[in-house]
Amino acid sequence: METVIDSHNISKVYEETAIPVHAVSEIHLHLERGEFTALVGPSGSGKTTLLNLIGGLDRPTTGYVEIGGVNITKLKDNQLIDFRLNNIGFIFQSYNLIPVLTASENIEFIMLLQGRSKSERETRVHELLRQVGIEDKHDVRPAQLSGGQQQRVAVARALASKPRFMLADEPTANLDSVAAGNLLDIMAKLNREENMTFIFSTHDARVIDRARRVITLQDGRVISDERYAQK
């Protein structure tokens, strides 16, 4: 199996306050291509911090993270931005689409940053909109889309860069059950058919129920790491 993420004994300590906060402590994590993993745990357990460290949005205080064999902890700021652009797809809780761009422009934007040709961008935008089932909304701005539709655009945007893996921070938190179910169906299908690796931080039982690996965090430490058969 191809290793996608390898974290080596990573810890994150926030020292902005009088008492240092150990958000994540000595975590070893090994994720392989095609995994559908949920990071779970109570609020403040370190899920989002771990996701940020894996995603190269933050740097660990100690330890390091390897993605596809590259030690991203050593990358310079600009190299890290490039690395994120070409290797990691982000899906945020509050969708975070660019409000002044249409659905298709939001998806195309990532590929523009990658310097892809116009024809390639257009073909891929069309394909991604079809994959997430909102071809008819291609010319609509985020404010005119429902939460579920916006999150689908966010998934399509994350996929547009052809990343090694997708990081989703509470992706269903703002969605009703139907929209959340539909979104999970899309992500599960991408995982199944394209072997796309997904890592979620979540409280949502529906997400946990679909995950084939559930890593539970508490006080910044992994307290359990369980794998399940195909769901």
Binding site: I81, R84, L85, N96, I98, I110, L113, S161
Partner: peptide, 9 residues
């Protein structure tokens, strides 16, 4: 968010 998804500074 733009910085996170890979837009250069």
């Amino acid at each position: 968010m733009l910085l996170a998804i890979g837009m250069k500074r």
